[in-house]
């Protein structure tokens, strides 16, 4: 049934998507890791990537919005990442970009979880119908034990015992 519907749609010209393809945005985005990035990052480290958003067109572009996305690419774990705790710097707006003008932006990340990731910066404009994207920046985050039980156990067990001992002393004095 669905095949028949699809065939009918194509016959009616509804499948002529290429004709409706949006005009490419005259914007290019380059992306490079910061020089200070560690070669082998682990959880808790910080990484930063620098993008340069450039107007390659011949007319000014207004209302440019750039935003960063992060994807996890481990086999079986592929998913977009909520940047809530990864970065406080998630987007920029550029009121106007003249022909040939470029804006450099640093996108810092705090590495919250281990895995293999892919960062990408996208840009759209107020009026344009297309999307510009940077090349992918791939990185791997090594796992790290975060809460050390060796430190927690003495405090978690010792402090109540200490207060309990203090109570015993108080009770005996009475």
């Amino acid at each position: 049934m669905s095949r028949m519907f699809l065939a009918g749609a194509v016959a009616l010209g509804l499948g002529a998507a290429p004709a409706l393809a949006a005009e490419a945005l005259p914007i290019s985005i380059s992306m490079a890791p910061a020089a200070a990035n560690r070669a082998s990052a682990q959880m808790g480290d910080r990484l930063s990537f620098r993008t340069v958003i450039r107007n390659d067109g011949t007319t000014p572009v207004g209302g440019v919005i750039g935003w960063v996305s992060l994807l996890r690419t481990d086999p079986g774990q592929e998913q977009p990442i909520d940047l809530e705790d990864w970065s406080a710097h998630k987007a920029i707006t550029i009121p106007s970009l003249a022909p040939g003008e470029s804006v450099a932006t640093d996108w810092p990340f705090r590495l919250i979880a281990s895995g293999t990731y892919r960062a990408v910066v996208s840009a759209a404009t107020r009026d344009g119908a297309a999307l510009a994207t940077s090349p992918f920046a791939d990185f791997t985050v090594r796992a790290k034990p975060l809460v050390e039980s060796r430190r927690v156990l003495p405090v978690a067990l010792g402090l109540p015992l200490l207060i309990g001992a203090g109570m015993l002393v108080t009770a005996r004095r009475r």
């Binding site: 809460v147 927690v152 156990l153 405090v155 978690a156 109540p160």
Partner: peptide, 24 residues
């Protein structure tokens, strides 16, 4: 103190919670 102990022991006793970032 017991309430704080229970919470911190939960952090080291649960595999998932122990993977929380230190800052979290």
């Amino acid at each position: 103190a017991c309430a704080l102990s229970a919470f911190s022991l939960l952090l080291v006793g649960s595999a998932e919670l122990s993977l929380l970032d230190n800052a979290q």
